[in-house]
Design a protein around this nucleic acid. Sequence first.
DNA 1: GGGGCAATACTCGGATATTAATTGTCCGAGTTCTGCAGG
DNA 2: CCTGCAGAACTCGGACAATTAATATCCGAGTATTGCCCC
Lengths: 169, 169
Amino acid sequence: MKLTKSLEQAICIMTLLATQDKEIPVTSAVINHRLNGSPTYIKKLMRKLVVKNLVTSVSGNNGGFTLVDSPKKISILQIIEAVEGNISTYPNSGLIDIVFQDMQVAANQGEIVLANVFDEADALWTNFLATQTVADLLYKTLGRNEILVLNWNELDEHQSLLQKILPTK
Amino acid sequence: MKLTKSLEQAICIMTLLATQDKEIPVTSAVINHRLNGSPTYIKKLMRKLVVKNLVTSVSGNNGGFTLVDSPKKISILQIIEAVEGNISTYPNSGLIDIVFQDMQVAANQGEIVLANVFDEADALWTNFLATQTVADLLYKTLGRNEILVLNWNELDEHQSLLQKILPTK
DNA sequence: GGGGCAATACTCGGATATTAATTGTCCGAGTTCTGCAGG
DNA sequence: CCTGCAGAACTCGGACAATTAATATCCGAGTATTGCCCC
């Protein structure tokens, strides 16, 4: 049982936006270049984050994406749910009830019991991830309790400049 | 994020075997008939349970499948791992490190932090499901603290007899 | 009557097809800024 | 100047194609019972 690759990308995007000067939206071109994935697909991904109100999009010239909230207020769970939808691991189709159908038991009883067990397990998982914020990730990774802010648009320009220069030599 | 349909089937099979007289193996034909799925696919599923030593298979005439252990000793987690393999939800491809590659941070640090967070969440999930046994499911569903035992092979014969008789009328 | 020997009723395991989910592409929009041309 | 207009630089959103994972089928085995035939 794996989450999708999209989720990994979404987390990257969120941490990236978290270290971005809030006044300057990051263009999707910059995100694409960083993540090195399919540009059009990443746009779709971005849309999911926008719809779930985790990032805002600014269209037009100098447009792009910005975090809605402080990284301290964005949990990993929110990102997961934006990308994957609600988490419910048990693929319930009621199949279990056919096992019990000959034992005098209320219909759906097996289904209910099973669904509850998995819901409980899922709740443990989601509750924990709800406590983990994007800021926590940055703190732990950078080893300090502050988030440094930079402008990815410029950072990326350098990179692409380099890549434009190198091949010509 | 869903587990596969196979898992639902596997759980049904395990509860079914749990209510079967241990002396009499259940044939896969009976299991197929009950689950109403693809017979050949269910055989493959059964194999996974056999390989993980949750059920034993007896070949030859009057052969079939039997639980290895008491339902009290079989956890839901064991069934899940037999069918889905080890649970690790984060689709780690190290992508996160590209975000941090320009900030002076040990390589892989982001990857490690993220993987740990998800591992911790997964552990909560799996630890809980490790405490839930097949016997628990039966108790909760049947509403009593004993597992009634029957012979599904015979039960199923009746059914198929009925189905053979009915169409002729 | 009992020892072999087929027939029967099962599981085993891999190669291969089908179907569903995920990922990726395309195209034609809409929106905001910038710069420039004409009054 | 300053007003308006065209173009550039972005996002939006849906329809469609390709890729990968899950499900299902097929086929040729192997193995233990059953029952019957022959000595």
